[in-house]
Nucleic acid binder design. Structure first.
Lengths: 129, 129
DNA sequence: GATAAAGGTTCCCCTCACTGGAAGGTCAAG
DNA sequence: CTTGACCTTCCAGTGAGGGGAACCTTTATC
């Protein structure tokens, strides 16, 4: 299968698939014309990667997940702890963003938003305590 | 004032302050020895930037906010709409992350996390629908 | 058979907001 | 005088690709 077919099936841009080959996540065969020739297993792998990325796993996490996926002797605890750590990072990020949201939303509500210069947002940012 | 003093007061790494000069956010004077010499106003600006960055504003947003801050004839509506757009982006990001969190948390809970290979997380990622 | 369009390839630079480190100049203390 | 802390510039790298040039192959059409 050629790259654009695979791109459609896996839900990834062709550029991304080439990049994933570059960094060693997939190793598609090559045809005589130099084109990449993807097996069904390659496609399956790329679909896996696409889903893992969509869940926010980093590329390095994806590499580890892929290795676990291919290792039929894995321990599910290894997968679970990887996912748990990622979940914790996501929760931390949500907490950070939620704090920003609170502050921003308060400030936006306090700002008149008219043509006068007075603005609580700038006051907050420029305040010399 | 020298850079490391300013770094402490503004709560920014010295490297970051140099970077902000590079991209034209601040223009500290220079002493005869070539050292940057920051005025109180420079420090005030950098503190402003530090706070705006802490609220998640991009550098380009910060540039605009700084311009508005320095423009005493600004309209508060300009500030407000900038902040409102940023708030919307943050809320979108939170929604994305919350969706990931839901999926991940469900999967993590479903995984036994023992030394057997069976794992719902990998099943979900590798599922061929 | 000629040609044009579509798809493939590599290669290099760009993003964002810094961060690390090397090589070297300056300053204050002992 | 030397040591160490501070300052300077410049170069390279981060994560995860994206844009685009230059060029090759396949396919469809005339």
């Amino acid at each position: 299968m050629n790259i654009s077919q695979v791109a459609k099936r896996a839900g990834l841009p062709a550029k991304t698939i080439r990049y994933y080959e570059d960094i060693g996540l997939v190793r598609p065969a090559r045809g005589d014309n130099g084109y990449r020739s993807f097996s069904d297993q390659d496609v399956h792998k790329l679909t896996f990667l696409s889903r893992a990325r969509a869940l926010g796993f980093s590329i390095e996490d994806c590499r580890r997940l892929l290795a676990l996926w291919e290792d039929t002797d894995r321990a599910s605890s290894d997968v679970r702890s990887l996912a748990q750590e990622h979940l914790s990072r996501i929760e931390a990020k949500i907490a950070d963003l939620a704090a920003m949201r609170e502050t921003l939303s308060t400030l936006v509500q306090a700002c008149q938003g008219n043509d006068r210069p007075d603005c609580p947002i700038l006051r907050k940012l420029g305040n010399t305590p």
